[in-house]
Design a protein around this nucleic acid. Structure first.
Lengths: 155, 155
DNA sequence: CTACTTGCAAAAAGTTTGCAATATG
DNA sequence: CATATTGCAAACTTTTTGCAAGTAG
């Protein structure tokens, strides 16, 4: 994962000017490894840097995404961003916690095992697992011997 | 895949009234097996049924999605709908053509092979393969791509 | 000092809601 | 005939754009 300084370094190396707003952004994304909506980003940055406008957030998110510092994912409820973690060149997928939205890498990639039907020319793929991480598992179902309630019903 | 009559049948069986607009919708989704944006739907329906309003499209898309007739997918460029194909209860995934947006089923599901790290409680997953189907493979120069990713800062 | 960035405001795009009129079952 | 459904208009959310002022390099 990239550190604040690394993120700033990349931006600087690409000729971007390092403003207070961009420092805030770098810090935010270096600290958090989950997905953030533009609004999340805006709210956080306002605390550090008052007088921020929303369009600045959008503009910078887009720039950082084009630089490869951030990656953009479309969720059911909208667009979200996180620190790019494929910048290290290592292909992997994610388990994404529905509660805290932290991500955990899955190094297993199903593509090599997948048959493309009828000369389908594969360009890219998406494999994402959603659920609850160990810190966010619904506690309410605390039954001690909940052994055979495995419903694998799934979307 | 569901036919026009089947779609209408489901809606009728659920107590929905069969209006001209809904017939258009049923016909549209029965004919096309790719993904359609609300705007696509609106444009198509206008040709068949003039005087249509946009909110009717949204309302019906939502209703049909709740009924399970349609399924809703979030793409990079927005929400899209298609005929529900999991209504038969058979879990599968899709290869989606980036050109014509037709989908091809993948019956292989990677979930059983995937290790959930650290007590991650899996709720759902998404496995989608994107590329070009045999009818849409880039023969020579496909101009329809969104190659608008310009590199900036090349002073 | 130069021009990249920002903030403001307003526009654009996408989606939802209230309500009276209409048409289905 | 009762009420689900539609069309209209307007609210609302999210994202984008133009432009003058501010600031990093």
């Amino acid at each position: 994962m990239l550190s604040t300084e690394q993120i700033i370094g990349v931006m600087s190396a690409q000729g971007l000017r390092i403003t207070d707003q961009r420092k805030s952004l770098a810090k935010l994304f270096a600290e958090r490894d989950g997905y953030l909506t533009p609004k999340d980003v805006y709210d956080y940055m306002c605390k550090q840097y008052s007088g921020l406008s929303f369009d600045t957030v959008y503009r910078n998110l887009r720039v950082m995404e084009e630089l490869g510092v951030l990656e953009q994912v479309v969720f059911e409820d909208g667009l979200k961003f996180r620190v790019g973690c494929n910048s290290d060149g290592h292909h992997h997928h994610h388990m994404i916690c529905l509660q805290c939205e932290k991500t955990y890498p899955i190094h297993f990639c199903p593509m090599p095992l997948t048959d493309a039907p009828e000369q389908f020319q594969v360009v890219k793929h998406k494999f994402e697992v959603f659920g609850y991480c160990k810190d966010c598992r619904p506690k309410e179902s605390k039954e001690t011997n909940e052994s055979s309630k495995q419903k694998k019903g799934e979307s």
